[in-house]
Nucleic acid binder design. Sequence first.
DNA 1: TTGAAAGCGCTACCAT
DNA 2: ATGGTAGCGCTTTCAA
Lengths: 325, 325
Amino acid sequence: MTTIRDIAKAAEVSVATVSRVLNNNGYVHVDTRARVLKIIKEFNYRPNAVARSLYKKQSNTIALILPDITNPFFPELAKAVEDALNLYGYTLMLCNSDERPLKEREYVEILKQKYVDGVILVSHTLAPEDLERLGLPVVIVDRNVHGKIPTVLSNNIGGARRGTRFLKEKGYKVIAHLRGPENIVTSNERYQGYLDVVADESWFHEGLTAVGNYNMKESVTATKELITKYPEIDAIFSGNDVMGVGAVKAVQEMGKQIPDDIGIIGFDGITLGEMIYPELTTIAQPIYEMGVLAARMLIKLIENKPLNTTFYEFPIKLIERKTTR
Amino acid sequence: MTTIRDIAKAAEVSVATVSRVLNNNGYVHVDTRARVLKIIKEFNYRPNAVARSLYKKQSNTIALILPDITNPFFPELAKAVEDALNLYGYTLMLCNSDERPLKEREYVEILKQKYVDGVILVSHTLAPEDLERLGLPVVIVDRNVHGKIPTVLSNNIGGARRGTRFLKEKGYKVIAHLRGPENIVTSNERYQGYLDVVADESWFHEGLTAVGNYNMKESVTATKELITKYPEIDAIFSGNDVMGVGAVKAVQEMGKQIPDDIGIIGFDGITLGEMIYPELTTIAQPIYEMGVLAARMLIKLIENKPLNTTFYEFPIKLIERKTTR
DNA sequence: TTGAAAGCGCTACCAT
DNA sequence: ATGGTAGCGCTTTCAA
């Protein structure tokens, strides 16, 4: 490996000078500068990032902690984050927490040991107090934590209302809801939005909501039970697209027609919704933009630049596809 | 931040001794050891990984370079790799190459600067020579590169034959093929396997193969064109599941019945295949196992342990679901 | 069994 | 405009 000393020697200057041209700071004569640059190129020299990190206490890498990259929502977010990070010269560490608080905590410790500069946290299990004590810049995506931690999310309640209302407008009469885990904010908000729209309907009762825990398998089962038990159901507002896709599958397996017998609308706007037949109508969050913004905010935080807003809520968008009439 | 010196001071020993107990090597008296450990716990001290890296020239992190985490095959692999890595105390760097040779190359340079210990490369654009010059332990997944680089893959030709033959056995008469990109080994091998089985059939001609480039959109278009142009087609062997899912969608959009009018079989065994209706019959690779093995091999390589095999080919498995009769 | 000190490769301060 | 050098936090000789 060639080091800064080798370059200094070859260019007949001190390491200090080489460091100066490397970092573009401090005075250095144009000629020496040129000479050093030439040698650097000749040797194809690249400064050692670890040595640099040790001194500067930062690593130009940030971590993305999420429950499970296998859940189709997260790769889309991860892609956005990576793209944005790259633009600013940062590198991405991927951490699956498996929703386990312990693993999440351990990860944070390891990250600190590695001088990781900051963390983007999606759907964490850490309490706000824990987060604030983290000793690491953090931005949260997709979970509304009540604290001073910068947060990026979308209008869940509004989106849920919009989706449910849309179903009504389309003439569906009895709208069921597939909800996510009970301990997750987005899930509760979406449920709330649904309630806001339907709670006063004559046909409404609590049995119309079933828990699908944001995953396919449970959603398929839940949907079948729901429809079997309450055959009057003719529409489903699903708390996320994954469950929505599960509902589509369940309904098809039961031999019913979509969107005529049953209309379905999801939430998230992941590409999975476009991969199935019929394509899933959904309340879309701007996932990519959210990821990019989170990355940008984190970088600002890291570089001690001011944040205009510490809390950003994106509007949602109704994408009408084929699972609604 | 508390450092090794703080611990040394508090425990009234030298940093050398602390280092010894930290790393469990060299002689240290049981009592001093206990004392040091106690102080470490008291201070909740964690050694600085960067300083360690600088000295040892390794970082306990490995990188996974893949084309695009958004493609549903890769998250499953990434999950496996991460799980395995964690077991051995390694951490995962995620790098999307976007199939761009330049980005891939830049990444490798950055990784070297960071003392990343090794790389798992999926579907790279680097030539074997480049790889060998990399100066970094590498294992390749899913691409058969002819070199001495350790490789993990599955039996693509055999799998393709098996899948195509299966379609014949089920009584399908005219079998088309949706193939992947022409410059990718797995894609060519799967094509070859298809040819091996059908090339001598009276109905066979080259027009029955269409390029879907391993992605959904193109596969939908390609499938529709194929079926429109050659209405006698009654089965499709798809080079991967993503295209298979695309084919299912295309066929349904055309109003044909699966599996009666048209049978479809995919390749890969990703969970996406189970999310659609009807569920996709497929030639499954053991993706998780492949990821785990790749990680293990890489770690052995890094730790200079002997590798029993430098080339590992997994058997495939036919999973019969609902897109074939 | 323990400690002193060199050194990993770099940055930044203080001189000159 | 340039150089010398301390120091980032750790590991590992070498001596004691």
